[in-house]
Design a protein around this nucleic acid. Sequence first.
DNA 1: TCCTGCTATGTGATCAAGTTACAGAACAGC
DNA 2: GCTGTTCTGTAACTTGATCACATAGCAGGA
Lengths: 220, 220
Amino acid sequence: MQMEQIKEAITCFPCLADITEEDWKENGISVVTLPANHIIHEGEFLESAALIMHGTVRMYKLGENGREVTLYRIHDGGCCPLMASSILGETAYEANVWIEKPTTVLFIPARIFQRWMGTYMSFRQFIFKSFAERLIIMSNLIDNMVFKSIRIRICEYLLDRTTEGQHSLTTTHDQLAIELGTAREVISRTLKAMEKEGLIHLSRGQITNIQREQLLELVE
Amino acid sequence: MQMEQIKEAITCFPCLADITEEDWKENGISVVTLPANHIIHEGEFLESAALIMHGTVRMYKLGENGREVTLYRIHDGGCCPLMASSILGETAYEANVWIEKPTTVLFIPARIFQRWMGTYMSFRQFIFKSFAERLIIMSNLIDNMVFKSIRIRICEYLLDRTTEGQHSLTTTHDQLAIELGTAREVISRTLKAMEKEGLIHLSRGQITNIQREQLLELVE
DNA sequence: TCCTGCTATGTGATCAAGTTACAGAACAGC
DNA sequence: GCTGTTCTGTAACTTGATCACATAGCAGGA
């Protein structure tokens, strides 16, 4: 690892600030940039923990029929607990990874990762917090899937991805279905119904004219 | 903490074997037995981590309509990551807890828990492994809910709870529904259909004559 | 420009699962 | 036995998933 890279890593992960220069010099620590649209399949083993410096990766589950559910995403400055658990718990991580944007990753070999976890409190707390966050995200996902209608879930998604000033969204029905873990046809039908009610306007690859206020009412 | 209790705690959690006597003497560490059928509601804050020495607790989500999903259970020698995350990540844990059997819990105040995590490697690894396990359990739960039919999920549940020699199960349709995160009526209908096909026999509070071999075939 | 192929969307028919609304059976305690 | 409670069964209906296409929009080459 070069001084440059170390500095950048610390910028992305303030919790690494305490790491000594010797520790950074350990063999096997590296910064790698992965191209977009790369996939890592379920069940592969990792010998390194991966901290995401820049970019976006999506963790998802794949059904036999080809349908998908997105479990969660990891963005700049995040780490993927499922991957980390694969190196800690000696189990292969049980999900697929989809690199959505070109992504720069800091790889830390399992044995060094383990040692740093013992030595550096801020690093340890950061990793723990990542675990805790994902657990909560996943339990809330279960909650949503079990108790909410897709219509409401679509509304929440649209509200999430837009702002007061930004009333349109570039996405396909297919992508939406993958996000929410349902079928494309279900999304198409529901969106069409919403369009008829004047809540949105549809065109190829785009949802425009999103009536945020009315959606907010529906969601409560 | 008395010597007796410390010994028992170590029996339940071998990872605590290294803890020094001084550390055990810290204020606030305690062993408490909670009665069955006690509930801890979503959103409450905890100031202690809870390690389950004996007993069973169930973590679950509750919908507005009263329906439930069981996220997972913790048994003897386990610890609850969602609870631990509430003391680590400063977020209230977002699930309900149902004490199913009288349960003996080792409580460790947050501040001591944090310190032990730094000092004791075996303790740290144990806690991490607990997190990793639950993440995997939850992601598999999502996988099951999204991609498998309830019929298959019921079969898997029945196979899980029985053995080669044990072809019956004491449970109500209501309990099954809660386990699988669906409605009681759906379970009743599906079980009835399975009974007609000769896969099981139903009586009040019991499922008997479970044809494990045939169920195994269905599940593949 | 038209043709071709690919991706995205729309829609009907059908099936599976969740909801509503009961009725009746089995059991527990008196 | 009677009574209240818990558990189970079922019909009718809504929502969501699957299957099977039809059509529309767009891109690139002939």
